[in-house]
Every structure is written in structure tokens, then in C-alpha cells.
Design a protein around this nucleic acid. Structure first.
Lengths: 333, 333
DNA sequence: CTGTTAGCGCTTTCAA
DNA sequence: TTGAAAGCGCTAACAG
């Protein structure tokens, strides 16, 4: 069951390998109709399939890109991946998907493996902790994009949400609804930028509205401590009246707490979440949400990466592409 | 900025390419300590990284597997992919992920591309409509596994849920709770096996309990028509008292309807869903669910595939690996 | 219009 | 213990 190669086809069609190669690459320009047909037949009869690995070796291009996400189980990652896949598919690129689990070591190994595999470029949700490696990549002029997060030390373009605005939209809405004691809970994974930006946006809008900032109302922690934090903020002398969930996981923890303690939403506690969740519109009460355009973000990242790969060097090269969040007002706020 | 190769390293270390190759493959058995060190240094100084494509060409193994899912946005797919990735990672395999969108044409192109790319094996959520291609693959003895679905005509092992039992568990629970008019709604994509199996399980358990089967209570349709179907079943002279949602999307449609029409759950309508959903336990009421072990399914598929690839041909080769569903009783039933 | 030839970067006998 | 040489399957000048 020997794998059949271009040589077999050539022999079978009584032409040379190069002619077959021409045919395969659709360079029929000067090919005799007859030759073409013989090759076509030979291919069919032998059920020949080109070996792309060999081609890649020669051409120094694998037509594949690597994607390293923190965790594919997170729906934002999934959506971004899907968008990337769709875009790449149009240009016949494939995706190698890796989960770094927010572990810088794992991230590093994946980056190295992907480069060893000669993928043409990488899109990555960076942990932020491999600054040296990132630098190296930039210097070697290898196509790479960041998504969702920013690594200030490194000149690699990022495609991400305008996080400050996202938090700001939510807070502004709360303020307009008359809430004054507004809390924010985010879960923190290392010192990744989005969390900070969201908190900044929160503070900024409070200030703009002449409200004071109470550090007791600002909590960063792991997902497992969210309920506790919420409990604290509701037990203060001046308990919060509204809370902004920094992401979907945090939101879900808040909802669990709310259910357990029979807290009325929004009467006792108004809630807004950042990140869309599948159940937002049929939850009771329907959830007010700040949505991020995951698909556009993924698509943009893919587009920019493929441009780089294909050297369509659109000179400019912004450093950060910010996408607009959207506030979807429902019943929980 | 020329890419540096094994030849450069050899030259730099003043040894031959083959010696370097030995070194890279950790065949130090008979290598002089001194040689080893020189090579090590050369590699470091030149910042050499092996080109895996070249190696793959020679070794006829790319250490990567292809995964073709219907849609990565579906959380079951995501979980399976994650499990596959984790397992493969342990053995240094990588994943190329593709979305076939339940489109047989797309599936076909992906299968062909993946083989052309010389991936060592494929795991696929089959559309079921490329029987010829599947046959061909089997005959060429190429490592492949099906997940989630079965294609009866083709002897490719499948890893999947015991769907009949999943539906059965739910129905049995309804019956024990005293419901007699029980409906089932599934969304149908071609004539893929799981849907049928679930309906069979539903019927079987009804019969076992001496209940009659009312075809008006059995509906297969696209997601967009679920609400309408539910409406019908609730408007019958003998309206249903309980409904089984065939998957998560169907469940969500049902919940939307329920909210819109202020139907009390479970008093007016009891609900059970197949497939876990993130909000099951904090929804109001908390949702009774039949869970499928997505991770085990993914892991098993990966394990079996890698076994095949590595020719650990565990003789036996079952055709179908069925996984047990779990009923999680909460408040909606 | 088609064939010859020389690699791409690595592995792997086989000799030395 | 190390090196020379052939070859994996394909592409791309360059001849003819």
C-alpha cells in the first residue's frame, strides 16, 4: 500500500514530474490540451493526492496559522476562534488550536512548537509573562497578533475590546437609573490589562458623575471567591445597590449567590455583566449586558495576520485595534 | 535573515549533519561528551530550531491530528475538543480544528485537505453524508474515529452517548413524578442517529410504563420552529404536562417561550433538557438535566485514535463506545 | 510546450 | 564514535 507520488503520476501519464507539478499548480498557460488530459486521467486512476508537507518544505509556507487561547472552554475564545477559522478558511489557511491555560510555560512551549512546525503566523491571547519571547518574535519579524489583551512592553498589535468604555457604559447606566453605591467584581488572572482597564473605566465614569470612589466597592479575586466578595459588599454599612460583573464567570457566581439568598433583582441589587451569556434574554429577570463583538475581533485579528503573512504590509500598523462594546438594557438593572 | 539549518549547526560545531541529528533525537548512546557539548553550544549560539516540516516529510508523521466538528460554537463540541487537546498534548500531538457546519461538501473538502496535509489521524463529528469517502478511508486503513454520531453503513468506531438511555432516564423520571402527557422536541439535522435514538428511548420507556405513544407529542424540527411546536403541544385538547428538550439549543428555545408566556415550571410544564447548560443550577427554577460526559467522550476518542496511529492495535476494536448519561434532578421537573 | 536538474531540511543506513 | 550520501515528495529555474 505504497503511497503514490508525483513521480508515479508522471510515469503513468508519460510526462515528467515538473509537468505534473505545473498542472497541479494550475499553470496550464502553455500546456497542451492533450498532456493536460493525460495527467488528469493518471491522477484519477491512481487516486493521487499531493503531499502538502513536501510542498510546504519547498515553499516555506504551510498555509496554517496557530491560535493559542487561554481556554477554549470560555465562550469568548470559542467565538473568536470560530471567526478566525471562517476568515482563514476563505484563504485556504488552517488552524492549529492550543490551550495555554494562562500558564506562561505552556504558552512558551506552544509558541516554540508552532514555530518549529513552521506555521505561517500566530494569534495569541497572551499571558503577558513571556515578554522576552515576544520581543524575540517581533525582532525576527514573524507574523503575530495579540487578541483580547495588551502587553505594553511589546510592539505587537492587539485586537481587543475598549474595556474602559465597556465598564463605563455599565456604570453610566447605573448612575442614570439612580444607583449611587455601585460595586464592581472582576476576576484577576495575573495583571492582565483588561481587568485594570475595566476598573479604570468604572472609576472614571463615577468621577464624571460626581460620585465618590469607595475602594470597598471594588473587588478583584478568583472566581471561587466571588460569592464571598459579593456577600461582603452587601453587608457593608452602606451596602451596594448595584454590581458590575467583570466577565461571564463572575456574573454566574453572582447569580448563584442571588438565587441562594433570594435577593430580588433589580430591586435589592441591580446587575450588569460584561460579556454576553447565552441565557441573558430569558433569564428571570432578563440580564442587562455589555456585549463585546467577539466575531469582529476574531475576524480583524485574522485579517491583520493574513495581511502580514502575505506582506500586504498596510504600512500604518496601528498598535491597538479597539472594538466598541454595546450595552443591551434588559431587566436586571 | 536566513533561516538557519542543521547544516549550519554542524559546521559551527565542526561535526557532520548526521551527528547533530543524532543529538537532536537524543540518541546520545555512543556520542562523546565533548561532541555533545559542542553541538549544544552551537545550537544555543545560532539559536537553532529544527524544522519539523522537513522531519515530517522524512518520517511520514506530522504529530498532528485533525478534528472536524459541526460547529465549535456548540459547547459540547468545545468540551470534546478540549478533552482531545489535553490528551494529545500529553503525547506531543497537535490539533487542527475545522468547522464543517454540518455541510457534507465542506466536510469532504476538510477531510481531503487534512489528509493532504498528512495529519496522522482524524476525529470527526460526521455529517453522515459522505459514506463513500468514509469507506475509502477505512479501506486505506487511515486512522479515523467518529464522535457523537454513528454512521451505520461504515465500520468506523464511534464514541458517543447512550442516547436511548439519556432520553429514557428523563422520561422515566417524568413518569415517576406522575406526568403522563410527555412531549419531546428535538432539532433535526439530516437523519443523524442521536436524534432518532433519543426518540426511540423516549418511546421505549413510555411503553415500559404502560403509557401510550402520542405522535402529536413528538416533534422534530429546526431550532427556529421550536417555540411554535411547543405552542402546538400546549394547545392540544390534551396538552402536554412535561417536555423533554433534545439538546441545549432546544431547551433554550423552550425557556424563551416559557418566559414569554409566563408559564409556571414545573407546575404548568415540567422540563428536562439533554446536554448540560451553564446556567442549569442557578436558573429559576433550577433545571433538571441529563448530562453527557463530554470530556470522557473526547478523551476516549483521542485515546483510541492515538492507539491506532501508534499501532497499539488493541485487537478487539469495538465499533461503538457508548457513554452513560447522568440525570441531575433539580427543580424544573 | 516539456524535461532535466538541483535543491528544501532532515533522517538514516552504511562505512570508515 | 562520526561522516558521507541517498532520499522523503515537491517546486522552479533553465534548457531544449
Amino acid at each position: 500500500m505504497k503511497r503514490i507520488t508525483i513521480a508515479d503520476v508522471a510515469q503513468h501519464a508519460k510526462v515528467s514530474k515538473s509537468t505534473v507539478s505545473q498542472y497541479l499548480n494550475k499553470r496550464y498557460d502553455y500546456m497542451a490540451e492533450n498532456t493536460k488530459q493525460r495527467i488528469e486521467e493518471a491522477i484519477k486512476e491512481l487516486d493521487y493526492r499531493p503531499n502538502i508537507v513536501a510542498r510546504s518544505l519547498k515553499q516555506k509556507s504551510t498555509m496554517t496559522v496557530g491560535v493559542i487561547v487561554a481556554n477554549i472552554l470560555h465562550s469568548f475564545s470559542t467565538q473568536v476562534i470560530r471567526a478566525i477559522e471562517d476568515f482563514c478558511h476563505l484563504q485556504d489557511f488552517h488552524l492549529i488550536v492550543c490551550n495555554a491555560d494562562d500558564d506562561p510555560e505552556k504558552e512558551k512551549r506552544y509558541i516554540e512548537m508552532l514555530r518549529a512546525k513552521q506555521v505561517d503566523g500566530i494569534i495569541i491571547f497572551p499571558t503577558g509573562d513571556n515578554v522576552e519571547l515576544y520581543q524575540e518574535i517581533v525582532q525576527s519579524n514573524y507574523p503575530i497578533m495579540f487578541v483580547d489583551r495588551l502587553v505594553p512592553e511589546v510592539p505587537i498589535p492587539s485586537v481587543m475590546l475598549d474595556n474602559e468604555k465597556a465598564a463605563g457604559l455599565a456604570v453610566q447606566h447605573f448612575v442614570e437609573k439612580g444607583y449611587e453605591r455601585i460595586g464592581i467584581i472582576t476576576n484577576v488572572i495575573r495583571n492582565v490589562t483588561p481587568r485594570m482597564e475595566r476598573i479604570n473605566g468604572y472609576k472614571k465614569v463615577l468621577k464624571e458623575n460626581g460620585l465618590s470612589i469607595n475602594e470597598d466597592y471594588i473587588r478583584k479575586m478568583q472566581v471561587s471567591c466571588v460569592q464571598e466578595a459579593l456577600h461582603d459588599m452587601l453587608s457593608l454599612d452602606e451596602p451596594i445597590q448595584a454590581v458590575l460583573a467583570g466577565n461571564d464567570l463572575t456574573l454566574m457566581e453572582i447569580l448563584k449567590y442571588v438565587k441562594k439568598h433570594r435577593i430580588r433583582v433589580p430591586e435589592d441589587l441591580a446587575i450588569i455583566g460584561i460579556d454576553d451569556v447565552s441565557f441573558a434574554n430569558f433569564y428571570e429577570p432578563a440580564l442587562t449586558i455589555v456585549e463585546q463583538p467577539a466575531f469582529e475581533i476574531g475576524k480583524k485579528a485574522a485579517e491583520l495576520l493574513l495581511n502580514k503573512i502575505q506582506k500586504k504590509d498596510v504600512e500604518e500598523e496601528l498598535d491597538v485595534y479597539r472594538f466598541e462594546p454595546t450595552l443591551i438594557v434588559r431587566q436586571s438593572s
